[in-house]
Amino acid sequence: MDCLRAETYVLDQLRQHLSPTLFYHGLHHTLDVTEQALGLAAAEGITGAEDLLVLRTAALYHDAGFLTTYQGHEAAGCALARQVLPGFGYCPAQIERISQLILATQMPQQPGNSHLARILCDADLDYLGRPADFWPISQTLFEELALRGLMPDETAWLELQVRFLSTHHYWTPTATARREAEKQARLAEVKARLAGSE
Results as ranks from 00 to 15, higher is better:
156 A>I: 06
142 F>Q: 01
142 F>L: 11
163 R>S: 14
152 P>R: 13
145 L>Q: 12
130 R>N: 13
142 F>V: 05
136 P>L: 11
145 L>D: 04
157 W>F: 15
162 V>P: 01
148 R>M: 08
145 L>Y: 10
119 I>L: 00
138 S>C: 12
143 E>C: 06
168 H>N: 08
158 L>N: 04
169 H>W: 09
149 G>R: 06
164 F>P: 00
165 L>G: 03
170 Y>G: 02
169 H>R: 15
165 L>V: 12
156 A>P: 00
130 R>W: 06
149 G>A: 03
154 E>P: 01
127 Y>L: 12
121 C>W: 00
141 L>G: 04
152 P>Y: 10
118 R>P: 02
141 L>S: 06
169 H>V: 12
129 G>V: 02
132 A>S: 12
158 L>I: 06
168 H>S: 05
151 M>I: 06
145 L>N: 04
123 A>V: 06
149 G>W: 05
143 E>P: 00
171 W>G: 01
165 L>T: 06
126 D>L: 11
118 R>I: 03
134 F>Q: 02
147 L>A: 15
153 D>L: 11
157 W>Q: 05
149 G>N: 05
158 L>M: 05
171 W>Y: 15
135 W>V: 13
144 E>M: 05
136 P>A: 09
144 E>L: 06
171 W>Q: 14
150 L>H: 07
159 E>Y: 01
152 P>Q: 10
165 L>Q: 06
151 M>P: 04
128 L>E: 03
170 Y>I: 04
139 Q>E: 15
138 S>M: 15
150 L>R: 12
149 G>P: 03
120 L>M: 11
152 P>V: 10
172 T>V: 12
127 Y>F: 14
136 P>T: 07
157 W>D: 02
